[in-house]
Design a protein around this nucleic acid. Structure first.
Lengths: 195, 195, 195, 195
DNA sequence: CATGAATGAGACTTCATTCAT
DNA sequence: GATGAATGAAGTCTCATTCAT
């Protein structure tokens, strides 16, 4: 693909992402997206294969960002609790760096057609499993008390995944602030009662 | 409205709620709902005014359940932290008593047409404000540490609002278990450091 | 299906048949058909499942007419040459009784989607095989000379299947005239040289 | 036009002819043709004026082959029945030498746009008229019996024009075999009863 | 109440064609 | 010559909704 084609595709994905985030996948028409780009509806098909393909590309890129940002952390030799802390920071950074992507990633994946939907769900489960592993290690290690593993994992993930609903780029908190506050609070709640 | 009419409407709402929860409002056609009821699409209009009206009724009933369950708590004379604890229990109970309603309430309200959407958002903000008040009282009172009020409120709400995504009626945790675990953990995290 | 629904469907099939015969399946739009019926394009879908289904129904009915008209002849005890003669008469009668159906049957079946296309081709081959059997019997019996069986079969079929291209209801020849002329001529050509 | 351009155009026509024969004109997109040539759709327009023009060129060339092959025969001094016999041989040779062209010639001409369609029909009628003349002469001369002139003409033409549907290059019959069998059979059928 | 045919709008997508590069 | 992005029209089909029966 030529450079200009790559750029144009990026533009298309960005615009679609924004509309999907705002209105939802089903409530966004191909015409809406084309219009936002100053194109006719049919012209979009020089860049994408289908509306479903569009969603798929957006979701794939979002998933990749999560995996890319967290991979080095997962593979590091840090102690469990520190690993989890850094993963949460990275996760929050990915979310806040592209709120639209986070919104689409969170809520629109179910509109993927099969078999993509299944594949996406599998990757999502894989990611959740990774976090759960860290939580388990924290429990084993004794950093966390005797909390329910699954429950703790979902609490951590859900608290991060709602950030896109209220975060503002120009708000008073940086992504780092948010991540710190979140980990401080949740870890204190999860930590083994001392003494 | 005759008793049988009320019953039939309830049935319609229940079926629609389930489909909206599963597939989303936009991805559910009036035909789908009718079919699930063993009817023709046109026949639904003997019971509802429009698809939008259907969504509105579902959301109104859901909202009502939240307000009904929390009103006595809000108006009670309990100490702030206890008020919050009981509100969270009630909230979790409402969610787990009708997961489909919770799902629709969480994700489909944006597909309401105006002015209903605005009204819904206002009620939602009102509810959030109520919780925020309780959080503020907990901070003032000294039960909670010097946490960001808005941040804490959203953390509490978001952690509850994701329950519908994983809760199972026949799972090992009762709604009460969940509420207790949640409040235990979050309150420990939010509590003022002792000493 | 109610009587009126049956009638309406018949009307739809008749109109579609006529347009498919005139312009071809691909060159006929659903809108064209609807317009010819005084309907909106979408309204057709109260009667048919898809454009492909429309073609399929037309072809199925046409095929059925051929099989229905020829079955008693095939199962009869007539001598081979008489069997063939009567089959040709029946075939010509079916063609001339609905020229549009004959045209669609002859030329548009390849636009069926799979697996229907394959099924149609199989039925067509079956019919051809039946005619070929009769031809073979005529050769064995000695009525026909030592002609190539396949060649003779295709000559017979093709000469009948072009009738729809020039036959006029108000022309000077009745279907019976045509069938007689055709059999007279072809059988003379195929007959074993006497002496 | 440069030699290379002529070659390229020939290639385009050949590929288009094949696709039109296989799928039909309307079911073949310009993209399909381009793809079969290893080109982009837009690039075809360096070689052709329009899709309609493409069909027109294919049909013109096919028509030309028929006229070229039959002209010397028509202008010859042979006796009528021998003329007709040779014309049929030539006709069969043209058909079998390019089955795709024969298929397109037979079935796709109706998709020409006006006024080309009218012109094509006129040439076709002219050709048919020519054959009809020969048939008439055969009747006058007494070689053929008192058969219907038009009927006989169409029988002859239709029996030849279906050959493309079953002829195989590697089959057991040469074009000459086919032509001989056909004339033998049809002429026997048409011949004046002796005695 | 329920049906089912009808509407008019709009969905996604493909089409033949153009044209700057 | 070829590319590929763009157009404007048109394709099939689904949608929410209405209404006579």
């Amino acid at each position: 693909m030529a450079d200009s084609a790559v750029q144009r595709l990026d533009e298309v994905l960005l615009v679609a992402e924004s509309l999907f985030a705002q209105r939802g996948y089903e409530a966004t028409s191909v015409r809406d997206i084309a219009e936002a780009l100053g194109l006719q509806a049919g012209s979009l098909y020089a860049h994408i294969e289908s509306k479903d393909d569009l969603l798929h590309q957006i979701l794939s890129r979002a998933a990749e960002r999560f995996f890319l940002a967290t991979k080095p952390i997962v593979e590091s030799d840090l102690v469990p609790v520190e690993k989890l802390r850094r993963l949460m920071l990275a996760h929050v950074q990915v979310i806040t760096s592209d709120l639209n992507a986070a919104a689409v990633y969170s809520t629109e994946w179910r509109h993927l057609s099969e078999p993509r939907r299944g594949e996406f769900a599998a990757r999502r489960d894989e990611y959740e499993g990774m976090v759960r592993c860290m939580v388990r290690d924290c429990i084993r290690e004794g950093t966390f008390g005797d909390v329910d593993e699954k429950f703790a994992t979902l609490l951590i993930l859900s608290s991060m995944n709602w950030i896109y609903q209220w975060y503002k780029d120009d708000g008073p908190m940086t992504p780092e602030d948010i991540a710190r506050k979140l980990t401080d609070m949740l870890f204190k709640g999860l930590r083994r009662p001392v003494g």
